[in-house]
Design a protein around this nucleic acid. Structure first.
Lengths: 289, 289
DNA sequence: TAAAAGTCATCAATAAAAGTGATAGTTGAA
DNA sequence: TTCAACTATCACTTTTATTGATGACTTTTA
């Protein structure tokens, strides 16, 4: 059974006349007759009653007719949806972000985007920067917000903003060396902020007691408050959360971490992604100057 | 777009590999490649990302995939339903009956039938006998219960039972001639009972004042009760309705009217109709002897 | 790093099907 | 009975699907 067969079938069913159906389909009558016969043979039932004056559906035919209408409707819908998906944002859009970006920078963007393009199914995945890069490279994500610049030859990256990193502690830290023999609370190993911090500490020869890994921002902040140790984090996130903690800016070359939106250079750009990017650029122009 | 195309497409989408999809479809790889390319050209979008190691869906591809799954599911369902409709009762079954039969004789039969074959959509139309015959001849109905024998060369007819006709009046009728100058309350002109009565009256030279036509049993009985006139009707119906009225049996050759179940000889017999007929015969054997 | 294995694209040749046009056979109505 | 309006059949043409061989590129393996 075939979509063309179903179209021929429904046309005959509605015209109740093979010759007229043929005309309306711009076919020759014999062709329509043959296709109906083939369909009947394939399904092993009679679909029409032939009675000199036109044809009428048998009850098997009516049964098929109900299905055929649905199938044809769906097929048209699919064709239109997919064709327009190149021009009009529709369908799934899978974007990744670090937990910090997802929590802080994305919500206003997303709310604008989702109201503008209600036919897009937005899917947001949060991962650490290195996982995100991998997912974009393997085309599992159409784009991602990552921390730190990333000049992979297969990736486009768009600078979105600088984030300020701070050390978060319960009590003031006189100097970086206060970290010696303290616990360091950090995201799992792929996190770019943790990476920055580790470079700094190595260079300054600071050796924390140990590094505790966490999966969420909430957990880290909770533990810092409980005096378990010190964490490194985006300043804007902590100030949102809690004002009782001490924030110590990192020394300058390490203080600022840029956030980039990366996409794969050679990947198919859906209309949904195209509009997402242009909305992102637009918002940057508004907030920046 | 074509069902075969969609099958090829979903197979590739699920295998994420054109060569493996080709193998699983028992095609040659180049054929699958071509069909995917044609589909992409037809829809004007890229459906897959090619990346050396297999292929992955673009977001347009995912959009199509959702539709394709539905369309394929529906198509399989339709095939199975229609194929089995020749053997297993399923789908629509359109049966006609006179109002009397529909009200009185069909309910027990239908309740058995509908529980036995829940996949059948039973459609009952009530008309007068002559309209029913016409509808069966023109294949608008698969079968019908009609009053009076009917030996049309294109029809099979199965005797189901005799109905007894009575005159229904508010007061006793001393003889048939009491009808002179009374109103006769009757169904619209196609009704077989009315036809029987008219033959009798003509033969006996009885001339009622006038004939009032009604569309429903209820209306006729109500009017008889109100003293508007006399009606002819199946005895079993009136006794169901009201015990205050006088029932006068018609003289013998006219008293009994047989009910037949008619079908078109050369029409396609659906499994639903076949089982309906056999249930009908079965019930006759139980109730008769 | 070179070889091997795996993958998709291209293309000419072949096989299968869809579609045509002429004709015959049926049915219902004037 | 004849006519008009249908559907069925069949040989033929055109279009489409499928194959098999080959090339180009990528990833894995030795």
């Amino acid at each position: 059974m075939d979509i063309k067969d179903l179209l021929v079938f429904t046309t005959v069913a509605e015209e109740k006349n093979i010759s007229k159906a043929a005309k309306s389909l711009s076919y020759v009558q014999s062709n329509v007759t043959m296709r109906i016969q083939q369909l009947e043979a394939e399904l092993g039932t009679q679909l029409f009653e032939r009675s000199g004056k036109g044809v009428t559906l048998t009850s098997s035919g009516e049964l098929l007719h109900r299905y055929a209408e649905q199938i044809l409707r769906l097929t048209n819908e699919a064709t239109i949806a997919v064709q327009s998906s190149a021009h009009t944002p529709i369908g799934p859009l899978k974007i990744g972000a670090t937990e910090s970006t997802a929590a802080l920078r994305l919500p206003p963007l997303l709310s604008t985007y989702c109201t503008a393009y209600p036919d897009v199914d937005f899917i947001l995945e949060t991962h650490t920067t290195d996982v995100l890069i991998q997912l974009v490279l393997t085309r599992k994500l159409e784009g991602a917000f990552v921390a730190g610049s990333c000049d992979h030859p297969d990736l486009n990256s768009l600078f979105t903003q600088d984030e300020e990193l701070v050390l978060v502690s319960r009590h003031p830290l006189p100097s970086l060396y206060s970290l010696n023999d303290m616990n360091l609370l950090a995201f799992s190993s792929g996190c770019a902020y943790r990476h920055t911090l580790e470079m700094l500490l190595t260079k300054e020869a600071v050796f924390p007691k140990r590094i505790l890994e966490f999966g969420t921002i909430e957990a880290i902040i909770g533990c810092v408050k409980a005096g378990m140790g010190v964490a490194v984090m985006m300043k804007s996130i902590v100030s949102h959360h809690d004002h009782s903690l001490t924030l110590t800016p990192l020394p300058l070359p390490y203080r600022k971490v840029p956030t980039f939106f990366i996409t794969r250079k050679d990947a198919f750009v859906s209309a949904a992604l195209r509009e997402f990017s242009s909305l992102l650029i637009e918002q940057l122009c508004i907030t920046k100057p």
